[in-house]
Amino acid sequence: MTTTTSTTVTLADLTRMLRESAGEEEGIDLDGDVLDTPFLELGYDSLALLQVIGEVQRTYGISVPDDAVVDAETPRALLELINSGQGSEA
């Protein structure tokens, strides 16, 4: 059964979940303008993104396919993927 969600995940939500689930690289200001900064420059590899996607799924009931996550290279791209409703089947 497909459920639609009206929840929008924000950049602040994403950075909070990144901190909690994958930690924070020293010398990186996640609260700065990081929307278009590649995750690799923020110190996050693909496993860190899988970890945060798990958190998104548990918190918001939004599921994102693992292979799509790998293509989302910036917070903007990942948020679009999360919020696009794609794979919102819980």
Binding site: R19, S21, A22, G23, E24, E25, E26, G43, L47, A48, Q51
Partner: peptide, 8 residues
Amino acid sequence: IPSRLMPQ
């Protein structure tokens, strides 16, 4: 331990 290494 650095923050990034704690969860892993």
